[in-house]
Structures are given as C-alpha cells and as structure tokens.
C-alpha cells in the first residue's frame, strides 16, 4: 500500500489510481482526509466547474457524455462526478451514469467517478466539493458535477459550481413542478432535452414565461437550449452557451465574487457541522436530553423552552468549559 504522501504526489502528477484512492479517502471520511485536503487545496482553483441537474430520466448523463466529447475535442481535460440516489433502506446504490458515457481513453483525458448520494460523510455537497477539488488539483481543467434534481442536491450543486445547467424534457411536467423543485432559481442555463418529442416548444415557452415573470433582478438571463442529446443535436449551441456564461462571469470579477460567496457559505456550513459535532460528541450529555424529554412528556415544559434552557446553561458553562481546555 502506498503512503498518503505518495498518493498525493501521484495524484498531483495526474496518476489516476492515486487520484481515485484519494477520493475514496475523503468519501469515507478517513482520518487522513483533512491532511489530504490540506495538501491538495493549494493546487486547486484552476478548473472551471459545471453543474448539471434535472429530474430523473431527463437525459443528463447522455448530455454530459456529449459535453465531454465536445470538451475533449477542444483539448480540455475533464473530471466528472456523477451522483445517483442511494437506497434509503439499505444505503446501497445502483450507479448507472457510466452506461451512457463513452470515453476513448487513448484519445480523451477524462476521469469519471460515480457516487451514491448517501455514500458521503457530511453531506453530498461536501463530498462532491472535496472530490472535485482533488480532480481539479490533479490537473483536470473542467469539472462536471451531475446530480439528480430531487430535493436538496440541486441546491448543493449551485453552491459548488460556476455554471449550473438544468436539464428538463417535454415530459418534465407543468411549470409548477419545475418551480417547486427549486430549479428555476439556480439555473444559469436551461436545456430542454429530447426536443424531438412533442411538447418541447411548450415547455421552453413556459420556462421563458416564468423567467419573464420572475421578480428577481437578473443581469444574466438564463438561455434555453433545445437539444436531442442522443442524436448529438444542439450540443454545440449548449457548449457555446456554457462559455458565454463563463465569459459573462469574467466581467467585474463576478466569478471571483461567486466563488467567494460559495467559500463563505461552505465555511459557515463547516463551522456549523464542526460545532454540532462537538456539541453532540463532547458537550451535551445524552442523559440530560433524556431527562428533558421526561419533563416534556409530563407536560412540564415545552420543547422550545427546553431547548432554550439547555442553551442558556451551555452559554453559562462555556467559558469554564473552554478554560478546561475543551
């Protein structure tokens, strides 16, 4: 087995196996993960990050496959993180994105990694971020993060990438569904895939309508591209659309601002999660909680005031706790 330092060194040189093993370490929350990230981070930041999301069956992986081919044709090296949902019951996942991805490894510099959505210690957004930084540091110039847009993951993707592409199809249902899914807010680019099917025009009109009615002030109006990814139709336009968003972000240091905002958010999230980790591991004792539950059950106190009481005690005790060295 190679040492962690050898893996880091190998990965920074672009060795696939080392990169792959480093990703596994952060995925599993291995004890060496912080060290790996510390060493890797200074080498990241060069790549451009693209997020791809949308409902199941929208053709995301096919679209990503065509984008990979397009990027490689222009001599970009590409890293892909493809996230599929895990079973809530067993934790297992069937990760099928590679079925649709065809990489000619002798001609294309591509690294694809599949992840189950609950594989991750500390949330999807954290692991995809860390894994994409490892790919970034290993020399990939474009990173694509693909997730199924159901629930939280599409919001995560907006916090981790520079350009977010939301892929829908004529079957994606009425506009309300799209609104509900929170996809409208995060999209920098809309794609209506399977555009050769009836209803493609309707859905692009309804997206347009929603954008027009949206109260949010926009400097960037998300374009809507019609594609049939399986036939490689509309991919060139989409490709150009990504770079035109990228050029837009270059103005007035907008990319920098976006990434700074993302770092700030990430930092906050990390503080929160570190804090809650400490809170539950080291500070609050389970039996105190159980005692409070007993009081709540007896209707002596309500949950909200119980929480306040415990926080009050905590704040009083905190200085002493910190002095004792935590």
């Amino acid at each position: 087995m190679q040492s962690i330092d050898q893996l880091i060194e190998g990965s920074l040189k672009g060795e696939k196996l080392s990169t792959s093993r480093l990703i596994s370490l952060v995925e599993r929350g291995n004890k060496h993960a912080p060290y790996v990230l510390e060493k890797i981070f200074p080498h990241s930041g060069e790549a451009y990050y693209i997020g791809v999301t949308g409902p199941p069956g929208a053709g995301k992986s096919t679209a990503v496959d065509r984008l990979i081919a397009r990027l490689c044709k222009n001599n970009f090296s590409v890293g892909v993180i493809a996230v599929d949902p895990s079973s809530p019951f067993t934790g297992g996942a069937l990760l099928g994105d590679r079925v649709r991805m065809h990489v000619k490894h002798d001609k294309m510099d591509v690294f694809i990694r599949s992840m189950g959505s609950d594989r991750v210690m500390g949330g999807l957004s954290r692991t995809t971020k860390e894994a994409s930084r490892i790919l970034d540091a290993s020399g990939k110039q474009v990173i694509i993060v693909e997730t199924v847009g159901v629930g939280q993951s599409e919001l995560d993707i907006a916090e981790a990438t520079d350009t977010v592409i939301v892929i829908l199809t004529p079957e994606s249902g009425d506009s309300i569904q799209i609104m509900k899914a929170g996809l409208m807010e995060i999209a920098d680019i809309f794609v209506v895939n399977k555009a050769d099917r009836p209803g493609a025009k309707d859905i692009s009109l309804s997206i347009q309508g929603m954008l027009d009615r949206s109260l949010r002030k926009r400097d960037w109006t998300p374009p809507i591209f019609l594609t049939t990814a399986s036939l490689n139709k509309g991919i060139d336009e989409l490709y150009e659309g990504i770079w035109s968003h990228s050029r837009y972000l270059q103005q007035d240091s907008m990319l920098e601002k976006r990434r700074r905002t993302q770092f700030k958010l990430e930092l906050r999230n990390r503080i929160e999660s570190e804090f809650s980790h400490i809170l539950w591991q080291d500070i609050i004792e389970e039996k105190n909680i159980d005692n409070l539950v007993q009081e709540i059950w007896a209707r002596k106190i309500d949950p909200q005031n119980a929480a306040r009481r415990i926080m009050g005690e905590l704040i009083e005790e905190l200085p002493g706790w910190l002095q004792r060295g935590g």
Binding site: L95, G96, R98, V99, G116
Partner: peptide
C-alpha cells in the same frame, strides 16, 4: 441484489476489458 445488500454498484452496461 448487490444494491439491496448495501453495496455501491457501478453499472457499466456492455463494455470491453480496457474500458
């Protein structure tokens, strides 16, 4: 079945040895 047993299964479809 492997998924139900809690494994992460990366499914490739039809592929040749190099891939």
């Amino acid at each position: 079945y492997l998924k139900e047993a809690g494994m992460d299964v990366v499914y490739l479809g039809n592929k040749f040895p190099a891939e």
